[in-house]
Nucleic acid binder design. Structure first.
Length: 377
RNA sequence: GGGAGCGUUCCCGAGUGGCCAAAGGGGGCAGACUGUAAAUCUGUUGUCGACGACUUCGGUGGUUCGAAUCCACCCGCUCCCA
């Protein structure tokens, strides 16, 4: 399923096999399409043109709309959105965090007030697995609690212990569902999730316990939720040595280009983040020499592409000045082009990370770009 | 020709004696955004040698301790009747 083909320090260059789309080259960035579409009017077909290897969707959102039974009736998520590559579904654990004002947590699971219509919905490990099974994704994420930061030690301890108990329930239910004769995707895999906030002992414990459950990969959750970047890196430093070597590690929801470069260095293989798409919608675009706000007045007459030499659909044809105009005029095309640029940038970033690892020059790559991509141009 | 209104800072538009450099939108300028309740949110937007000062509410003159607010005339615009 997963094979590390080259290693430099803790950084890994690998290959991962999925039911759909064949081999995934890692390190990889998964492009986020929460509701089965990338926000900004970008389709699965566009993702292909943007060098996307894996798409990510959300259990909670698709359960609310259109409903996982509807998706199943439509032949599963791949068929519905016409994407034949791998799909990872997030379990809804992040919504336990982001919809904090609208939920209640017990050992059984979490009761949410739907943000769509306010109705009560219950989701526990079994429910999340059931929904993800009906969606037919290639990778299901375990149902966890993404704890806010900061949070007291005692709460984080009890929460991450419960997340481990939930993982065992997820695993049992996942195996049962995959064996059913009418399973949408019987080759669906399951990733466990490490939690523990900013407490190193809890992180290590969580990783060790999760590793005892036979998962296809392990997510590192609950990071980049307000803590200092240095704290996130330290958690990766102390936690990843306890993750199984032969399974992929997925740093959930992270992050900036620099975060990714640094996390790869610490042994992470999978990433996802709303940042490239959301920032693009808001006019912040990434380049190899830093980020820029295309809405700024200084681009009014700038006839250069966002990034000279970039091969994305926006840069191949359009100027900064035109893109700025489209943003100012609130044309949909502005967001679409901007999102495509940022996703292309992220997917290209991963490509270059892989190339550097293949060449055994990752340390040099990291030294050159980790700081540079954070600058403001 | 007769009658009734209106003119506010880039725009629209509140304000009808002091608490008004003047509400609220829009527009402009800038910032934030990390497993997406986000095409969202925040700041700022008269000038300056700036915890104070100066200029501004069509124009001019007046009343008043004090005027965007009251009075007179003038300019411009709108509507109704002829």
């Amino acid at each position: 399923m997963f094979k590390v083909i080259k290693q430099e320090g803790r950084a890994r260059r690998g290959r991962f096999l999925c039911a759909h789309g064949g081999e995934v080259q890692t390190p990889v960035f998964m492009n986020v399409g929460t509701q089965g579409a990338i926000k900004g009017a970008v389709s699965a077909h566009d993702l292909k043109a943007l060098k996307c290897q894996i798409e990510l969707s959300n259990t909670y959102h698709l359960h609310l709309r259109p409903g996982d039974e509807v998706v199943r009736a439509l032949g599963g998520l791949h068929k519905m959105m016409d994407w034949d590559g791998p799909i990872l579904t997030d379990s809804g654990g992040f919504q336990v965090f982001s919809l904090a004002g609208l939920r209640k947590i017990t050992e059984e699971g979490v009761t949410f007030a739907s943000h769509v219509d306010g109705r009560r919905i219950f989701m526990g490990p079994e429910e999340s697995m059931g929904i993800q099974s009906r969606l037919g994704s290639d990778i299901a994420m375990a149902f966890d609690e993404c704890v806010e930061n900061p949070a007291p030690y005692d709460y984080v301890k009890q929460s991450c212990e419960r997340t481990v108990r939930w993982l065992r329930r997820c695993k049992a239910e996942h195996d049962r569902l995959n064996a059913l004769p009418d399973c949408v995707n019987p080759r669906q895999m399951l990733f466990g999730i490490n939690q523990g906030g900013t407490y190193e002992d809890l992180r290590v414990w969580s990783m060790q316990e999760s590793a005892k459950v036979d998962c296809d990969g392990y997510g590192i959750g609950g990071l980049a939720v307000g803590e200092e970047t240095a704290v996130m890196y330290r958690i990766l430093d102390v936690t990843l040595p306890h993750a199984p070597e032969d399974k992929p590690r997925y740093l959930m929801g992270v992050g900036t280009p620099s975060n990714i470069i640094e996390a790869v260095w610490r042994g992470v293989d999978f990433f996802d983040c709303v940042m490239p798409a959301r920032n693009a919608r808001h006019g912040k675009l990434f380049t190899w020499s830093g980020s820029l706000n295309i809405k700024n007045e200084k681009y009014k007459l700038d006839e250069r592409p966002i990034e000279p030499g970039c091969g994305c659909p926006a840069c191949r044809s359009f100027s900064r000045a035109y893109l700025r105009h489209l943003f100012k005029a609130e044309e949909m095309l502005a967001m679409r082009l901007a999102v495509m640029h940022n996703l292309w940038f992220y997917n290209t970033l991963m490509e270059r990370i892989r190339d550097a690892l293949d060449a055994g020059e990752y340390d040099a790559f990291r030294a050159e770009y980790s700081r540079k991509v954070e600058e403001r141009i």
